[in-house]
C-alpha cells in the first residue's frame, strides 16, 4: 500500500513558502513514468500557486537522496525532495 505513495519533502525557504515540510501523493495521480517537472505541475494543482516556487531556476531536486534534473522519472515509493541552493559550513 505505502509502496504506491510518493513522499515529497520541502526544505528551508521552500518549506516556508509551501507552508509544509512534506506531503504524500498516490502514484496513480501521476502519469506513467512522470518526470520531476510533471510532478511539480501536480503539486501546484494540489496546493495552489505558492507551489510555483518549485519552478524557480535555482531549485534543486533529489530523488531518493540523489540530486537529479527535472527530466528524471519518478516511481512509486520514491522520496522526492525540493530545496534551494545549500548554504552550510
Amino acid at each position: 500500500m505505502s509502496d504506491s505513495l510518493i513522499t515529497i519533502r520541502f526544505f528551508a525557504s521552500l518549506r516556508e513558502q509551501l507552508g509544509r515540510p512534506a506531503m504524500e501523493l498516490a502514484s496513480e495521480h501521476l502519469p506513467d513514468s512522470a518526470t520531476v517537472a510533471e510532478l511539480i505541475a501536480v503539486i501546484v494543482e494540489r496546493i495552489g500557486p505558492q507551489a510555483d516556487a518549485l519552478n524557480g531556476a535555482d531549485v534543486q531536486c533529489a530523488v531518493n537522496q540523489q540530486i537529479v534534473s527535472h527530466a528524471e522519472s519518478i516511481r512509486a515509493g520514491d522520496e522526492v525532495a525540493f530545496f534551494p541552493p545549500v548554504t552550510g559550513g
Binding site: F11, A12, S13, A62, F83, P84, V86, T87, G88, G89
Partner: peptide
C-alpha cells in the same frame, strides 16, 4: 564541496 553539495541551509 561541503559548502556546495551538503544539504544544509542557514537562516
Amino acid at each position: 564541496f561541503l559548502k556546495t553539495e551538503a544539504p544544509f541551509w542557514k537562516k
